[in-house]
């Protein structure tokens, strides 16, 4: 039988070649349509139902502590606000005092910052601890605490017209911030800036060449790894589009932040960089919540006028 097949094939090899090519081409063209991308379904991943706490506290500008409590939801499907938790029991202890906490629910979710927050008025000093505990009958308790940082106040901020050049070789203006870093403790800073003239207000981005500094939300975050306990001159560059602006309209906010705040915003920057980017390793957001997810951070801002 095999011999017969071979003989037949030998005789018909030209035909076989043509048939093969012609047979492959339709496959090729039909296979191209809608080939390159398709929606796929996988079993929704199992996830831990736990409480998520988000709270950023600024004891200088606002005595209200806002706490958003939510729950995770399935990654696939319709995205909505069903994760909001408005029937949790929230306990806040600030500086050793139990704080009265109320839940504020507003239908307009764009109404910030009170919509769906648990809020409490607190008054704290540097070194005080703020403790948050959130309980719900359906899931485990989540707790988080922070110690109010000792604020660092810059001695001066000097505008430098030609502070450096960027990778395009363009001249850039900038600032020198002079401050004393407290010794023998880890300190973390977050600096951002705004240009307020009588006609307009611009938020501009800052950049530092200091080792260990990173950008976050147009500002710079930095830890005192390389200058612990020293008198520091920190140079920050601004975009060259601000080259000829008036120095007196620049305003910097110098924030002393907690370590957890620093680590969280650091992870947010990496997270943003990794989302939908197949060439970058996925980044997990930093959380300091025990028994849950989210972040509680404290920021102590100081307004630093530019000289």
């Amino acid at each position: 039988m095999f011999d017969t097949f071979q003989k037949y094939f030998q005789k018909a090899k030209g035909l076989a070649l043509a048939a093969l090519l012609l047979g492959l081409l339709p496959f090729f063209f039909t296979s191209c349509s809608d080939f390159f991308e398709k929606e796929i379904a996988i079993d929704p991943p199992d996830y831990l139902d736990q409480l998520v706490i988000h709270s950023f506290f600024d004891p200088v500008n606002d005595s209200i502590l806002n706490i958003l409590v939510t729950r995770p939801q399935e990654i696939f499907g319709v995205r909505d606000l069903s994760g909001l938790v408005d029937d949790a029991v929230v306990t806040v202890i600030a500086g050793g005092n139990v704080i009265e906490v109320n839940h504020r629910h507003l239908t307009n979710i764009n109404h910030r910052p009170l919509a769906n927050f648990y809020t409490g008025h607190i008054s704290v000093d540097p070194g005080d601890e703020i403790f948050i505990r959130v309980s719900h009958e359906d899931t485990q308790e989540a707790v988080v605490s922070q110690v109010v940082p000792q604020p660092v106040v810059p001695d001066s901020v000097i505008f430098i017209e030609r502070a450096g050049i960027d990778v395009d070789g363009e001249s850039r203006s900038g600032f020198d911030i002079y401050f004393s870093d407290p010794p023998e403790e880890e300190n973390f800073y977050y600096i951002s800036g705004v240009y307020r003239s009588q006609f307009s207000t611009f938020y501009f981005s800052l950049e530092s060449l200091e080792p260990g500094s990173e950008t976050y939300n147009r500002g710079v975050i930095i830890r005192d790894q390389t200058f612990d306990g020293e008198d520091v001159r920190l140079r920050l560059l601004i975009p060259n589009s601000f080259l000829n602006m008036q120095p007196q309209y620049f305003e910097l906010t110098f924030r002393t932040v907690t370590r957890d705040f620093y680590r969280h915003v650091q992870s947010v920057e990496r997270y943003e960089n990794s989302i939908d980017n197949p060439f970058v390793a996925p980044a997990q957001l930093y959380s300091n919540v025990e028994g849950g997810l989210g972040i509680f951070g404290i920021i102590w801002p100081v307004l630093a006028p530019v000289q």
Partner: peptide, 12 residues
């Protein structure tokens, strides 16, 4: 991702 959750930024 396993899940997603609603949160806030430090700017609210």
């Amino acid at each position: 991702p396993e899940s997603r959750y609603l949160g806030t930024t430090d700017e609210g």
